[in-house]
Simulated scan of single mutants.
Amino acid sequence: MRDAVIVEAVRSPIGKRNGGLSGIHPVDLSASVLNSLVERAGVDPVLVDDVIWGCVGQVGEQSLDIARNVVLGAGWPESVPGTAVDRQCGSSQQAVHFAAAGVISGQYDLVVAGGVESMSRVPMGSSSGDAWPFGEGFRERYQGVVPNQGVGAEMIAQRWGLSRAQLDEFSLASHEKAAQAQDAGHFEGQIVPIEVDGTTISADEGIRRGGTPESMAAIRSAFQADGVITAGNSSQISDGSAALLITTSAKAAELGLRPIARVHTAVVAGDDPVIMLTAPIPATAKALAKSGLRIEEIGAFEVNEAFASVPLAWLSETGADAKTLNVNGGAIALGHPLGGSGARLMTTLVHHMRDNGIRYGLQTMCEGGGQANATILELL
């Protein structure tokens, strides 16, 4: 019986907007991650059946099937294909789902799933430009409301009764946890140093130290004059890439590879596209129901910190133990390179599970259009 196992997972550092990674083309950034993945695994890339690469802004430098361009830019054999995936912020988590389904069905024996976003070079929203992506049917159904993630985050805060102080406290904790993880070397085993114009970038750039409730309170609201969502309690605009190598247990044994974790359960869910960011809640419920596991059996959670209100509402609805959520910080501190974030979260989760002997981990993230992927991993 075929399964899907992760045998290696790596990521670049996450660069802040116009920071250290802004000087490297997204194809070259991805190629560095891709080559490090197979080097660490000890696998000849000619064996890879496909590269499934998440990317949201598939325009300009990230256009024309960036996955195939990454494969060729990495110097891999021309026989290795690649395809780009866009499920908004969950694009590279969806890439993992497609890869797992491919190896379980027998379409693949060895596949790479990952993603990239260079938001410094391809700004958010570039793919639609001035075009109207929704259509008249959408406008009529939702009474002309144009979905806006920041406004959706405000709606969540209002619906779940989350105060500005709670959001800021959560955000400060994200930076504190990320700083502690960085200082303790918890990210070193997962990060691929990136060379940019003679400089080596080897650490996440977005972590801020020494923040206080007072400094957070001084930041103005971003989406509503009297709102609670600010740049300080939202994810950062970032550059970054991550990748995972996926195969079956049988193929891993044949190639002499040691599996880290099994893709136990993989689901996707939809919810209200106007509030947009609530789908991790039903996605988590769907994953738990399909897996037969209880939330108390999950020892680690990665819930993307698109805005602080998202994981806080998720905690309120799921009853998960807050101590097991984003223990190494999240996108508020580390950054959110859209198409690369799903694979970044999963890479961090896989390493955390292995380092701490945690049997089950769950990842979920809100996505444009009111969607969410949820993945349960089992440590092997």
Rank of each mutant, 00 (worst) to 15 (best):
G73F: 02
Q371L: 15
L325E: 04
T248M: 00
Y360T: 00
G42I: 00
G54F: 08
V268H: 13
A372S: 15
A179K: 08
L379T: 06
C89M: 08
G211E: 14
Y108W: 05
S341V: 08
E8W: 01
P26V: 05
V59A: 09
G232W: 14
A283G: 03
G319S: 07
I295V: 14
T284V: 10
G129K: 07
T230Y: 02
G185S: 04
E296H: 08
S120N: 03
Q182R: 11
N326C: 11
A250F: 00
A333P: 00
D197M: 06
Y108L: 05
E61P: 03
A31D: 03
D168H: 07
A250T: 03
G329N: 07
L334K: 10
C55A: 12
K16G: 03
P13I: 07
V327H: 07
A225L: 12
N373H: 07
L64P: 00
A300L: 15
L293W: 05
P77N: 00
V51S: 08
A74G: 12
P213G: 07
V7S: 00
G125P: 05
T199I: 11
G20N: 06
Q58W: 01
A374H: 06
I14P: 09
G211L: 15
M365C: 13
G368P: 13
S221A: 15
E140G: 09
S105Q: 09
A266H: 14
T318A: 05
V116C: 04
I14H: 09
D28T: 08
L64K: 03
N304I: 14
P337H: 02
N233G: 10
H25D: 12
D271S: 15
D44K: 00
E317M: 10
E61Q: 13
E117D: 14
A218S: 14
A279K: 12
G329W: 07
F187P: 02
Q363W: 04
Q371P: 05
Q88D: 06
L362F: 12
V192K: 01
W160F: 15
T375H: 15
T230M: 03
A31N: 03
P280H: 10
L47G: 06
S105M: 02
P13W: 02
W132R: 08
A333I: 01
I66L: 11
M353F: 03
G60N: 06
Q143R: 07
A252W: 00
G319R: 10
E176W: 00
T247G: 04
S12P: 08
P259W: 02
S316W: 12
G299W: 01
V145I: 15
A374Q: 06
E61T: 05
A31K: 03
S234N: 06
G342R: 04
I14R: 13
G340D: 01
G330D: 05
A343K: 09
S241M: 04
A333N: 06
P282V: 11
S163I: 03
L315F: 11
H336G: 09
S174F: 09
L315P: 07
G152N: 05
H186G: 08
A306C: 12
M1Y: 02
I14G: 08
T284W: 09
G292Y: 08
Q94Y: 10
T347S: 12
N356G: 02
R11D: 14
S126R: 06
P26S: 02
A181E: 01
P213V: 08
G115P: 11
Q363S: 15
V267D: 02
T212L: 13
G370S: 09
D49E: 03
A289D: 15
T278Q: 14
P45Y: 04
S291Y: 07
G240Q: 02
A173N: 14
N148S: 11
Q62D: 01
